[in-house]
Amino acid sequence: MSLGKRLKAVIKEEGLSQRAFAERMNLSVTAIEHYIAERRTPSGELFIEMGKSEKFRKYTMWLLTGSVEPNSGQICPAFSTQEKCGLTAGEEDTLKKG
Rank of each mutant, 00 (worst) to 15 (best):
L63Y: 02
G51I: 11
E33K: 13
E38G: 07
I32D: 03
G44H: 02
L46K: 12
T60Q: 06
E49S: 12
K52S: 07
G51H: 09
K52A: 12
H34N: 09
N26E: 12
E49I: 01
I36D: 09
N71S: 08
K52T: 08
P42G: 04
H34E: 09
E45G: 13
F56S: 08
T65H: 11
I48V: 11
S72G: 04
T65M: 08
N26D: 14
M61W: 04
E54R: 06
R57T: 00
I36E: 06
G44K: 01
H34T: 05
V29Q: 14
I32P: 01
A22E: 04
A31E: 12
E38Y: 06
A22L: 01
A31Q: 14
E45H: 13
E23L: 06
P70F: 13
R40I: 12
T65N: 08
K55F: 02
M50L: 11
L27M: 13
K55D: 10
A37Y: 08
S28H: 00
F47K: 01
G51D: 10
A31T: 15
N26A: 13
M61Q: 02
S72T: 03
I36Q: 11
R57K: 14
H34C: 11
E49K: 12
S67E: 12
A37L: 02
P42D: 02
I32H: 01
M61N: 03
L63A: 01
S28K: 02
T30H: 14
H34I: 06
T30V: 09
N71K: 12
R57E: 01
N26M: 09
L27S: 05
A31M: 11
L63C: 01
S28V: 03
R24F: 05
I48W: 00
R40Y: 11
M50R: 03
K55A: 14
V68T: 15
R39P: 06
L46A: 08
E49L: 00
L27R: 05
S53D: 04
M50S: 05
R39N: 15
L46D: 12
T60N: 14
E69H: 05
S43D: 10
I36L: 07
P42K: 12
G51K: 12
S72H: 10
S67T: 13
S67W: 03
W62P: 13
I36G: 10
E45M: 09
L46S: 10
F56M: 12
E38N: 15
Y35I: 05
G73N: 13
R24I: 11
I48H: 00
M25G: 01
Y59T: 10
R57L: 00
T41C: 03
E33T: 14
S43M: 02
G73R: 12
E69W: 11
V29P: 06
R24D: 08
K58M: 05
R57A: 00
F47M: 06
L27F: 05
T41Q: 11
I48S: 01
S28L: 00
T41I: 14
T65E: 07
G66E: 02
I48L: 04
I36Y: 09
